[in-house]
């Protein structure tokens, strides 16, 4: 399996190192998510008693849109530096490239979520630590990144690639988004894990299915 793990780890290591050097992605994702939260506060003007109803939606719009920027960066960066061919020339399996890129995007998105949620909780006077919220955030972000990595590699080869990614990604990830919003709502309403069990099931099946299928299909979008 060294033919899978070493190249995969190499891509992850390379993306993390680049991020450590430039701090491009996580910082801009954080600021963008913060902007979304602030704008929504003005747009919806949620009264204190309504916060529990509107908060899940606001959080996930912020996570999803900001995450999409991060996914887009993943391959736009390779394209701009002209390093796509370097990845493609390596004998590493395309699924190793897929998983490496996916994990990097996933980590950046999770980092952004870890940074933005405390701010959000403070602004709206919400609890800071909700285990089921954390669990669904990880699961949904994984599903988002699993589909997003394929579409990001697709969008980068089209004209007007910045508009292409949301157009492709949003409809396909609707189930994950719904699950995330609903479970977050349950968590904020103080309900237990049982209330969200079927959502976790749905998101988990989505994650597994799309990870496997996307890893298999990735080759087709990379090829020239």
């Amino acid at each position: 399996m060294s033919g899978f793990f070493r190249p995969m780890a190499a891509i992850l290591w390379k993306d993390l190192l680049l991020e450590l050097r430039t701090r491009d992605v996580v910082a801009s994702l954080f600021i963008f998510a913060l902007l979304v939260v602030v704008i929504f506060n003005f747009a919806l003007d949620p009264a204190p008693e309504l916060v529990a109803v509107t908060a899940p939606g606001i959080v996930w719009v912020a996570f999803a849109f900001s995450g999409m920027l991060g996914l887009n960066r993943g391959f736009v960066m390779e394209k701009e530096q002209g390093t796509m061919d370097g990845l493609l020339l390596s004998p590493a399996g395309r699924e190793a490239i897929y998983v490496g890129k996916l994990l990097a995007s996933f980590l950046f998105m999770v980092l952004m979520e870890i940074m933005i949620y405390p701010v959000f909780a403070a602004l709206f006077n919400l609890p800071f630590f909700l285990p089921s919220f954390i669990a669904i955030s990880l699961a949904s972000t994984l599903g988002f990144a699993a589909v997003g990595t394929v579409f990001s590699a697709t969008a980068v080869n089209t004209r007007s690639r910045d508009i292409m990614l949301p157009l492709l990604l949003m409809p396909v990830t609707v189930p994950v988004f719904l699950g995330a919003v609903k479970v977050t709502g349950n968590a904020l309403a103080g309900e237990g894990w049982a209330a969200s069990a079927s959502w976790f099931q749905l998101v988990a099946i989505f994650d597994i299915l799309f990870l496997v299928v996307a890893a298999f299909l990735f080759e087709y979008v990379l090829e020239e």
Binding site: R6, A9, A10, W13, K14, R21, L87, A92
Partner: peptide
């Protein structure tokens, strides 16, 4: 943004 050594180390790993 990677050094010459890091760039080559990356490709060395890609080629296992």
């Amino acid at each position: 943004d990677l050094t010459v050594g890091e760039n080559l180390a990356f490709y060395a790993r890609m080629y296992d």
